[in-house]
Each structure stands twice: as structure tokens, then as C-alpha cells.
């Protein structure tokens, strides 16, 4: 039974088989419908482990710094700055003290101004923080020239 109708059909069938074969090798074995069903949970299961394996940089645990930097820890713990994590100003701990052996510190005025630029916003916690206008309050000078961030009270002025 020879017919010009069959030939294109063979081509289509061959193409479909080829696509299915490629799909078998290309799509990972753990790809499928998982806990959240077809609409939200259709994915490669291994991707979850990829995200879990992402590197942690911040510890955000001031107790972690206490053993080596006890002087700074004991000083700041008695002040309103006790709520600030060491890593917020000193950068992520990573594998310190192995890597990196030294952490940098951000001494720019802008760091302190994050909280201490005076904004009189009545319905926010910002209104309760002592603030300055950086254009009038000793412009150009690093805050740490006078203020000790680990003892920021007025008694702690350098």
C-alpha cells in the first residue's frame, strides 16, 4: 500500500519518538509532581537540596563573639546598642577567625545615620531614637571620633 499520505505520517511518528527519547534522558529522574500537587509542586526535587546547601554567611549571635571579644561584649550589653548584632556593623562572620581572619568595620557616618538621622515620624519607632541633622552636627567627621559605639551613652563620650 504505497501512498503519499503515509510518508509525512512516518516523519511525524519518528519526530514524536525522537522527542520522547530526548525527554527521557534530558529530564532529571526526580522531576515530577511532589507534595503540593501539580499546580504548585511540579518540580525537580533535588532543587530543594540545592537551596539548602547555600552557604550561610551571617551567624547573628552576639554570644558567638563573647569569648574572644569579651571587653566589647561586656561594654555594649549594658547600653541601648545591645540590640544591635555585632555583624550589622562588622560584616558577616563567615568562618571567622579562620577565614577571614579579620572582619572589616564600617565607620562611615551613613552607618550611624541609618537610625540616628532625625526623622520625626509619629507612628514609627524612629521617633523615639535620638537623632541629628548630619549637615549641622559636626559635618565630615566620623561619629566614632567622639562617640563609642560600644558605649554610646553620653558618659561614654571620648
Amino acid at each position: 500500500m504505497k501512498s503519499h499520505v503515509w510518508r509525512p505520517l512516518y516523519v511525524v511518528v519518528a519526530l514524536v519518538i525522537l522527542i520522547l527519547a530526548v525527554r527521557m534522558f534530558y529530564v532529571p529522574k526526580d522531576f515530577g509532581i511532589w507534595e503540593r500537587g501539580y499546580m504548585y509542586g511540579f518540580h525537580r526535587k533535588g532543587s530543594e537540596n540545592d537551596w539548602k546547601a547555600f552557604k550561610v554567611k551571617y551567624k547573628f549571635d552576639n554570644e558567638d563573639c563573647k569569648d574572644c571579644h569579651s571587653d566589647k561584649y561586656e561594654s555594649i550589653i549594658k547600653t541601648p546598642h545591645a540590640i544591635i548584632k555585632c555583624e550589622n556593623c562588622h560584616g558577616p562572620e563567615l568562618d571567622h577567625p579562620n577565614d577571614p581572619p579579620k572582619l572589616t568595620v564600617d565607620k562611615r557616618r551613613e552607618l550611624c545615620l541609618r537610625c540616628h538621622y532625625q526623622l520625626p515620624y509619629p507612628t514609627s519607632g524612629r521617633a523615639n531614637i535620638m537623632g541629628i541633622d548630619p549637615e549641622k552636627h559636626n559635618p565630615g567627621v566620623e561619629c566614632v571620633m567622639c562617640h563609642n559605639p560600644h558605649n554610646p551613652t553620653l558618659e561614654g563620650l571620648k
Binding site: 511532589w34 503540593r36 504548585y40 509542586g41 511540579f42 525537580r44 532543587s47 530543594e48 540545592d50 537551596w51
Partner: peptide
């Protein structure tokens, strides 16, 4: 393509390889 999905504990993630 099923690259973004919800985990069992409700977090929506993106599969960067997909």
C-alpha cells in the same frame, strides 16, 4: 516548565538550573 514551585513547608523557590 516547573522551575518555580512550592515546597511542602510552604516556601516558593526557583530552580536556577531549570
Amino acid at each position: 516548565v516547573g522551575a518555580t514551585y512550592q515546597t511542602e513547608d510552604g516556601v516558593v523557590l526557583v530552580d536556577r538550573t531549570w
